[in-house]
Structures are given as structure tokens and as C-alpha cells.
Computed example of a mutant assay.
Amino acid sequence: MISLNEAKKKAAYKAVDENITSENKIIGIGSGSTIVYVVERILQLKNLLNKECIFIPTSFQSRLLIIEGGLNLGDIDQYSEIDVTIDGADEVDENLNAIKGGGACHLREKLVAEAAKKFIIVADYSKRSTTLGEKWKQGVPIEVIPFAYKRVMNSLKELGCENPILRMAKAKAGPVISDNGNFIIDAHFGLIEHPKELLEKIKLLTGVVEVGLFVNMAKNAYFGNEDGSVDIK
């Protein structure tokens, strides 16, 4: 049995090998621990890729990975159409719906995913579930405007979340601040049988900027397994 990190690496490498080619000119790079291996593999194959290829980051982390790797850095404002985006996930259900936002980057991640002709998820076996909420117990990440967070939390209770939590920073006193200057609420709804309906209800709340439910977006998901194999859905 291999480690979670090794499983992530195998999934990331296979996803890059099968989805990033010399024909790709604009590539979206997601965020999180799995993406480190995605960029690692891209750098190994750098000489086989289009030298003018532009990489679009979804966070400060992925921006640094692109810059430090000597890759061409672009921005979603410059390149609104992306050939392929590869990103991780906190949980993926059997229909390839996902929960994202554990790293508070889901607004930019969703923008870059939606702009892509092909959105690919990479994850280890611990992130794979039948129904969202089965594995990821921290709740759905919701980015909110700071002055609206209390009202949004009250509204989330009306939607069925018993105890919405304002995500607090671990190395400073106060809440987590997203790259966009907003707060993050984690809202646990138990098993999410109908993610599209829940997404729509939360998005309608005044003050909500984005919701970490990625519904009907991924074309494929690559899961690194305990035995070293990779499943593709």
C-alpha cells in the first residue's frame, strides 16, 4: 500500500501525461497539495510542450509554482479561454461533482475551471466518495463579503446547516482571508444528495461571492489508489 502523497503523485502524473500536449497553448493550474505534482510533471515534460504555452494560476501558491518553474505566467483577464485546467479536490462523488475550497481558493479555481474546454480533477483515493459529504466533513466552503458573513450564516441555518463556522486562521488572530479579501464560511449539510440544488440556493444569498460546489464541470477525474494504480472516471 502506498502513501496518500504517492497516490496523489501517480494521479497527477497520469493526468498530465494524458491531457497536456504540445497542442495546448493555455493551461489552467489549480491549487493544493496535488498540484505540486502536476507542475512537477509539467516541468519534466517541458521540452515536449509548446514553448509559448501560457499557464494560468488559481492562487498565490500556483502562481509561485509557475514562476519558480520558469513557466510562462498568464492571467484569466488576459486569456478568458483555456485549453485544459487541472485541479485537485477535497471530495469527488460518483458523478464527478466536487467539493473544493479547503484552501480558500475556490472562487478563482471555479473561474479557471469554467473557462477551460476540458476540466480535469486529480485526487488520491481518500477523496473519492459515492455522495458529497461522505468523506469531507468540514463542510461546503463559502466565500462571503466580510460585512455580510453574519447574515449569510443565519441564512445557511435556514437552508439546513445546523452550525456554519467562520473559518479562523491558524497562525494569526482572526478569520481566514481569501486572496480576494473575503471571509470563508464552512457549512456542513451532511450527505449532499442534490448538489446542484444546494449550490443554487446558497448562491442566491446576498453577500455570497462563491460556493465550493463544482457541479457538472469535470470531464474526467484521476484517482490514485492504494495499490499504486490510477482509476480514471
Rank of each mutant, 00 (worst) to 15 (best):
I29K: 14
D83W: 04
I27C: 06
V92Q: 00
L45S: 02
D77V: 06
L49S: 09
I56Y: 12
D77W: 02
V36C: 03
F60Q: 04
G103H: 01
V36F: 13
D90Y: 02
F60Y: 12
S31G: 04
I54E: 14
A89R: 00
K100L: 15
S59C: 04
K46M: 13
Q78K: 10
I35K: 02
G28H: 09
V38Q: 13
D90R: 01
G28I: 03
F55E: 05
V84H: 13
F55V: 09
E40G: 11
P57M: 09
S59K: 10
L71K: 07
G88Q: 02
L48W: 02
I29G: 05
N47H: 15
Y79M: 10
E94T: 13
N50V: 11
T85N: 02
I66K: 08
G70R: 05
V84K: 02
E91S: 07
V39D: 13
I76L: 13
N72E: 02
L64C: 05
E40K: 10
I99V: 14
T85W: 00
K100C: 04
I27T: 07
G28M: 07
L43D: 04
E52H: 05
A98F: 10
C53G: 13
S62H: 08
N95H: 12
I67C: 00
L64E: 07
I56F: 02
E94V: 15
A89S: 07
Y79R: 09
D93P: 13
F55A: 06
R41N: 14
D83K: 07
L64N: 03
E81F: 11
Q44M: 14
S33V: 15
N47W: 01
G101P: 10
